[in-house]
Design a protein around this nucleic acid. Structure first.
Lengths: 242, 242
DNA sequence: CAAGTATATGAATCCCGCT
DNA sequence: GAGCGGGATTCATATACTT
């Protein structure tokens, strides 16, 4: 299946894409959380907030907004994505618990019909004494107007289980498991186009291509765009029939 | 372990209970959701919204508020519960996806420190064509000030899996699985007291007693209070050592 | 080759001390 | 006194490695 990877700021790139050109938005934006104080959230790098590894993976930008600006930013991204999506198209957005209420606000303000929250469970997440583990991230999902179930007669689960890739398979600080993304992109009808304004290392795109969907991605960070480009090129070869 | 079951309206009953008299709030309030329109939510009975069974279980009240009033009502319930909870105590509140943002607002407005969202997955929930299944309900949890982990050195999961009781074990329209509740009440330190202002058929209380915690419950509906009373009496006999 | 053992790590959280 | 950053804590899980 064909794919396009744009390099640059998500809002700017989306502004130049035509109305109704995609069938589904599937994305994992920066969460802008981590840390108790505003300063901890806004001054530390994503890497220092979310990982303990000393070496290796590049940092990512766009993770230094306070909650108000984050809501506004997500609103604009989701509004542009809404414009790009055809009637009856769908959206799935990852978010953590702290920003979930902000996200559902932005999601609806942008025009999307909010239809539910699914959970992604990470079995290998860190336990904490005297507390409930933060083992779930959440999927806010919905549609642009009514869902046309005849276009996509699939029944998707409400709970996804999978761990982040490790070792050499790990390309991004906050990478999602490929198996989970392959299931999620099937909310987009077969041969439809999946949009991801925060492509990162490109897992959403790889999943889309493997499931027979086209892909349009945007990534601002050069290092990650290079990685995504390479992974997408490889996934393009993947034989659906195999 | 000892227990008390009050009969009457939650807000009124809570107002008469003393400060700092419980260690944890664990409750499953009416969700005031179900139905797409405000009219559907506020005019239908809880039973017609949440069950497809023809016969049997009594209806429950308090499920006919619009979103704004629901938020206000939960705020008042959570505020009173906060007053009743000792410093360092914890709270767990069930909620569905539609009211989750309203709940996290009310939770924090009432003074609680919001510390996370866990998920309860219902494997038997109904799949929907072209959609993600609504198989999860959510647990908003937090504490009154800092958590004293030394009082309760337990590591609790972030995902709970269990189906609603069926057949004769089913006593309430929206009953929670006993196994799930038994795990959750252990967020309350051993021999502490668990509060549930919406006791329903009393599952929280039964779980608390079985796990060696005391219980204070409130239930407005006479039929359910009778059922809860009977179940609590039986659970009191339960031998912890067994 | 299956089963058991060792090791590394996590979109975390908190304490503590320095600025 | 508030802001800021370093470092310890902790165990289920995944993976590598050994028997």
């Amino acid at each position: 299946m064909p794919y396009t990877l744009h390099r640059g700021d998500a809002l700017r790139v989306l502004a130049d894409l035509p109305d109704g050109s995609v069938d589904a938005l599937v994305t994992d934006p920066p969460y802008n959380s981590g840390g108790r104080t505003s300063a901890e959230r806004t001054t530390r790098t994503a890497r220092s907030k979310y990982t303990q590894e000393k070496a290796g993976l590049p940092d990512f930008d766009g993770d230094n907004k306070d909650q108000r600006s984050y809501g506004r930013w997500m609103f604009e991204i989701l509004q542009e994505s809404y414009r790009l999506t055809r009637e009856g198209g769908t959206a799935i957005v990852f978010i953590d618990w702290r920003q979930l209420p902000t996200m559902t606000d932005s999601f609806q303000l942008a025009g999307w019909t909010w239809r539910g929250i699914a959970a992604w469970h990470k079995p290998a997440s860190r336990p904490q004494r005297g507390r409930l583990k933060q083992s779930c991230e959440f999927l806010v999902w919905g549609s642009k107007g009514p869902i046309d179930a005849s276009r996509n007669p699939l029944y998707l689960p409400g709970l996804y289980i999978g761990s982040q890739p490790r070792g050499t398979a790990r390309k991004h600080i906050t990478q999602k498991p490929l198996d989970v993304m392959r299931e999620l992109v099937t909310l987009c009808p077969p041969k439809g186009t999946v949009l991801d304004p925060f492509a990162g290392s490109g897992t959403t795109g790889v999943a889309a291509l493997m499931e027979g969907r086209s892909f349009v991605g945007v990534e601002a960070k050069e290092e990650y765009a290079d990685i995504a480009q390479a992974r997408l090129r490889e996934a393009e070869q993947y034989d659906l029939a195999a």
